[in-house]
């Protein structure tokens, strides 16, 4: 007999038994130990048919192919740039993937992206933990201009974006800021008024703190509505 030992959406801790029996399958952040399913992270239980997974509340970013991330240029070389994407090792953005313009061989690459610049890039290859290739060819991929950079834990990114971008759309509508969110938890935002930027940052921090609660979009709407008058 298989049965669940916790309720759906319950908070579990590492080592907590979630289900018993072989009918359930371990998903993300869940391992099987004999006939038990055990959580490996602090997170919320989520069920999808027979698949049991834990939605982690915090954790390091794991680079995946196809992720759109924001990174900081930390190295300029002859053949490309080194970019910090919030992973222990720097990722590589090569000249051929950086631009469709013609860049002469041996050109000074710091004219394009210099140390400290932030870029929105796509991960095109993760060949090993130390070799991550980036590309800037694609819609929305660009060098990020002046603005503010925030960092949130990467498991909170889906909540900040919301279903079909509902949450981030809300922030953009109410504050008029331009906001870009990377899968790695880096957020870039820029607005015409510092007060509006501060409100957007406060809103993002609020989502980060309450990401595990339900009905957040509605509450954010009320929050932004009440704060808007102060602008």
């Amino acid at each position: 007999m298989s049965k669940l030992l916790v309720n759906e959406k319950e908070i579990v801790v590492p080592g907590q038994e979630i289900a018993e029996g072989i009918d359930f399958l371990p998903g993300d952040d869940v391992i099987r130990d004999k006939d038990k399913l055990v959580s490996t992270k602090l997170g919320m239980v989520s069920l999808n048919g027979r698949l049991v997974r834990v939605v982690a509340l915090n954790g390091p970013y794991l680079p995946k192919r196809g992720d759109l991330v924001i990174g900081k240029v930390v190295g300029v070389g002859l053949g490309g740039w080194r970019v910090n994407i919030g992973w222990p090792f720097e990722a590589n953005l090569s000249v051929k993937d950086a631009s469709s313009d013609f860049i002469e061989k041996g050109a000074d690459l710091s004219k394009y992206f210099n140390y400290g610049d932030y870029v929105m890039v796509e991960i095109i290859n993760v060949s090993s933990f130390k070799l991550i290739d980036l590309s800037m060819k694609g819609p929305g991929l660009r060098k990020l201009g002046s603005g503010r950079i925030l960092r949130v834990p990467s498991p909170k990114v889906p909540r900040i974006i919301g279903k079909q971008g509902s949450m981030i759309g809300l922030i953009k509508d109410y504050t008029g800021c331009k906001v870009s969110v990377g899968q790695n938890g880096f957020i870039w935002l820029s607005g015409d008024d510092p007060k509006k930027e501060v409100l957007a940052i406060k809103a993002i921090e609020k989502i980060e703190a309450e990401s595990h609660t339900s009905g957040l979009t509605d509450r954010m709407k009320t929050y932004l509505e009440s704060e808007k008058n102060g602008l």
């Binding site: 952040d29 130990d33 490996t40 602090l42 982690a56 915090n58 954790g59």
Partner: peptide
């Protein structure tokens, strides 16, 4: 470690 989201088999 659990709060940091490091994978753990148990506390």
């Amino acid at each position: 470690l659990a709060h940091a989201g490091i994978p753990m088999k148990d506390l």
